[in-house]
Write a protein that binds this DNA or RNA. Structure first.
Lengths: 102, 102
DNA sequence: TGCTAACGTAAGTCATGGCTTACGCATCGG
DNA sequence: CCGATGCGTAAGCCATGACTTACGTTAGCA
């Protein structure tokens, strides 16, 4: 059920912005927060959620903390959405077939 | 940006349960709510959110309202996650290559 | 050994959202 | 035509969560 925490993490628009910046390449917190409409502590809190969801990894670099995207957690979410999509398609086809028979 | 509302809609566990029941096949509200740990009005509210996100469609059948899954909205979410996943993979590779060169 | 930079965290505020009960409204059957 | 069924919606409650400012902590640097 790792996709659950990923869904929650990515449901917030600001946190999505943070995550997309990390995906662009490994960055320190200050660089991520730069230009965002929220304060740096807010970004730290978002990164904490993303980290607990497994979406990003943290690496200490002196006084800075460099965050990088972790494709694996994204892959699990991808697999879940894919399965749901397939099921929805299959159910739709079955529903149409049932309609034809009347 | 249709994926945004889909992410919000699917981030709630109860709403996910509702959606998964709809994916299983078109059902009326009463059937969906049956066995769930929340009341029927709560299910109605969840269905409203899912409908506004485009994840389900509504069809009136006498006094009942039959809800069915809409694969298209799920497909858009799928495409978005897929793109993010690719980008994350690409950034990871680039990061590793940069590491090798030092 | 201070000073500064780059963080995380604590505490408090405020809006959002999920849930309940109560009610209103349309539809089918007698 | 009237009761019952199957809903959606309104109102209110309460927990959660996103954000702020203030502070503590650690690492580089003169």
């Amino acid at each position: 059920m790792a996709y659950a925490s990923a869904l929650i993490a990515l449901s917030d628009p600001t946190r999505r912005q943070v995550f997309e910046r990390v995906i662009d390449g490994p960055r320190a917190v200050g660089q991520i927060a730069e230009g965002l409409p929220v304060s740096r502590p807010a970004v730290s809190q978002h990164l904490k959620v993303l980290k607990q969801a497994g979406l990003v990894t943290e690496q200490r670099r002196g006084t800075r903390r460099v965050y990088a995207a972790n494709p694996q957690a994204l892959g699990e979410l991808r697999a879940w959405v894919e399965a749901m999509w397939r099921d929805a398609l299959a159910a739709m086809m079955a529903s149409i077939d049932g309609e034809e028979q009347k």
